[in-house]
Nucleic acid binder design. Structure first.
Lengths: 194, 194
DNA sequence: CAGATTGGCTAGCGCTGCTAGCATCGCGGT
DNA sequence: ACCGCGATGCTAGCAGCGCTAGCCAATCTG
């Protein structure tokens, strides 16, 4: 029996290895450099082994995305709880969000840009994703005006941050004015709050 | 002499054909269906002919993007000039922008999402792009508050629209509440305007 | 100890963007 | 009028992609 247990352990360890290798490669050279061949070489197994763990490349990327999501949630929480005041919290979360997108572009893309078949906005979405959205929500809800749906306002603020992050990173918005744009955004969203 | 002229004409016509075929294919089946082989078959020439007109697939996509940009600019202008009042114009432009993204996803992606080597936010950016941004600007600037940089505010509003458009289209935001989110956004940006 | 089952491998399929090298066609000079 | 030459578009192929069929060995089971 313990032999089977060991096997399972080794198998789980190898799966962890695959995800870690995919993440490292993506963060170092971008997702276009992450091929199943390179990934297989990295973990020192043959290509088909990957397919005994994941349905395909997309599933591997989705696993990396979920991992990154947990980190994003943690960073948002840290930013939010480090300041006091609703406006300050909103600004801090916005700053943390765009900083994450800038510092971990591969993770960010896996979560929010690329199509990896990850369910969103449904109960089947991974808990890490809900947690990250919850952190955004805890920063946005307090600045919601009378009669505004906090969830909708969170979605809107999130979308705005996403737009800033992606357009800036792709070079479509000049990098140097990022802070100023973020300030404008948070200012307009926290217009009537303390 | 007129033979060379005819040749040039035919060549220009063929180039137009390539871009048109790429656009049609992309709009009908998405960019992943646009391969150089299918494109060549569509224009009834061999593959290498494409490379005598464009440096590569990216350049073809960029040409489609510029074309789409002109249409986006026209639609934004139409939306803006069809209503009166600054708030109304801002809302109309926002609606037109997200509608364009939804109705012409392939064009939108070529312009704003995919990396096709198109210069942005520099003098080398194509005139069509500047024109589209100018239309946004004409809608945003009138609602800028005292001391706010209209250009920066335009960029921020644009980024927010881009976020809404991309997240909604990729299924990360539920479609049905799009109008409500757009209303929240424009409301917050036009807070102090007439 | 023989037979069944599992697990990882090699090899290969059909596709991608792109290019080298070869024909053929038509212009310009003698 | 004809011949050489440059331009033009073709066939064929390269290297790499995601993914899978089928084999072979090692392990578990009766």
């Amino acid at each position: 029996m313990s032999i089977q247990k060991r096997r399972e352990r080794e198998r789980a360890e190898r799966e962890r290895l695959i995800v870690a290798a995919a993440r490292e490669l993506a963060e170092a050279e971008g997702w276009e450099a992450v091929t199943t061949r390179r990934l297989a070489a990295e973990i020192e197994y043959s290509q088909p082994v990957l397919y005994s763990h994941f349905k395909g490349k997309e599933a591997i990327m989705a696993a990396v995305a979920v991992e990154g999501c947990a980190e994003l949630a943690a960073e948002l929480r840290a930013a939010r709880t480090a300041v006091s005041g609703h406006r300050e919290a909103l600004a801090a979360v916005g700053e943390a969000y765009t900083a994450f997108a800038r510092r971990r572009p591969a993770l960010y893309d896996a979560i929010f840009t690329l199509d990896v078949g990850l369910p969103f906005a449904t109960p089947e979405a991974p808990a890490e994703l809900w947690e990250a959205f919850g952190e955004l929500s805890r920063a946005v809800a307090p600045v919601a005006a009378e009669g505004e749906d906090p969830a909708l306002l969170t979605e809107t603020y999130w979308a705005a941050l996403h737009g800033l992050a992606t357009l800036t990173r792709s070079g479509r918005l000049p990098e140097e004015a990022h802070a100023a744009r973020l300030a404008l955004l948070t200012g307009h969203f926290a217009a009537g709050a303390s």
